[in-house]
């Protein structure tokens, strides 16, 4: 464990809690993409299959369970809880049909198995790495469509992006400080793609903080 990974994980947890807070406080799901949340749940469930096979640490297991459980709770609130359910606007959340996200990632994961040798857990794990890279896209598109971004929604995406950026620093740190650390280029590639998706958001977020005004995206 290093400081970048720890702070990254905590940013990730903070982002999920901020989204839950937004849903609870405003009783409103406008500006939130259900598709992104469902893709994230698929990412966590596929990646954390090792919860059943390998124990790393209490920290590791608790965080994995929290990510899965809290994301499932967000989805439940958006799908089933009144009045939040009525405020979710599916017509704005249309960018990516889930199957067009899942199918290419599954194909890529299968291809990766040809290179690495087949292992069921690795297949799901690689799939989750590819899927996570694009899971935020529907959310970013919803933001673009609404333009005016609520404070908590803005913070949610900021912390999520910070988590990804800190993981890049974590890999650099690990490669220098861990004897025999194996480079995992699939993870680096997906992680860099994913972080790059946030760059535009970070730019406008920073400008709005600097000016102290409302956060809105350009048309």
């Amino acid at each position: 464990m290093n400081i970048f990974r720890l702070v990254g994980d905590l940013c990730h947890l903070a982002s999920i809690l901020l989204l839950l807070l937004k849903l609870r406080a405003s009783k409103n799901a406008s500006g939130i993409s259900l598709k992104t949340q469902e893709l994230f749940l698929a990412v966590f469930v596929c990646r954390y299959l090792d919860l059943f096979t390998t124990f790393y640490s209490v920290y590791n297991s608790v965080m994995k369970v929290l990510y899965i459980a809290l994301t499932a709770l967000i989805i439940h609130m958006m799908r089933a809880q009144s009045p939040i359910r009525g405020t979710y606007d599916a017509s704005q959340d249309t960018f990516l049909h889930v199957k067009y996200a899942v199918a290419p990632c599954a194909a890529l994961a299968a291809l990766t198995m040809l290179v690495q040798g087949f292992d069921v857990r690795d297949l799901f794990w690689n799939f989750s790495i590819y899927l996570e890279a694009i899971a935020i896209v529907p959310q970013l598109i919803v933001l673009q469509r609404y333009r005016e971004v609520e404070n908590l929604t803005g913070h949610y995406i900021f912390f999520l992006g910070a988590y990804r950026a800190l993981y890049i620093l974590n890999w650099i740190y690990r490669s220098f400080h861990e004897r025999g650390y194996k480079h995992h280029y699939v993870v680096y590639f997906a992680g860099i793609v994913q972080t790059a998706l946030y760059v535009d958001f970070f730019y406008y977020y920073a400008i709005s903080k600097y000016r102290g005004g409302k956060f809105s995206l350009p048309s």
Binding site: R5, D9, H12, D50, T54, Y56, S57, N60, M63, K64, Y67, Q116, G117, F118, D119, R121, D122, W125, N126, Y167, N170, R174, K182, H184, V187
Partner: peptide, 10 residues
């Protein structure tokens, strides 16, 4: 696991 994937990461 065959790939040495960093499963300890989240």
């Amino acid at each position: 696991s065959s790939s040495d994937a960093p499963h300890d990461e989240l």
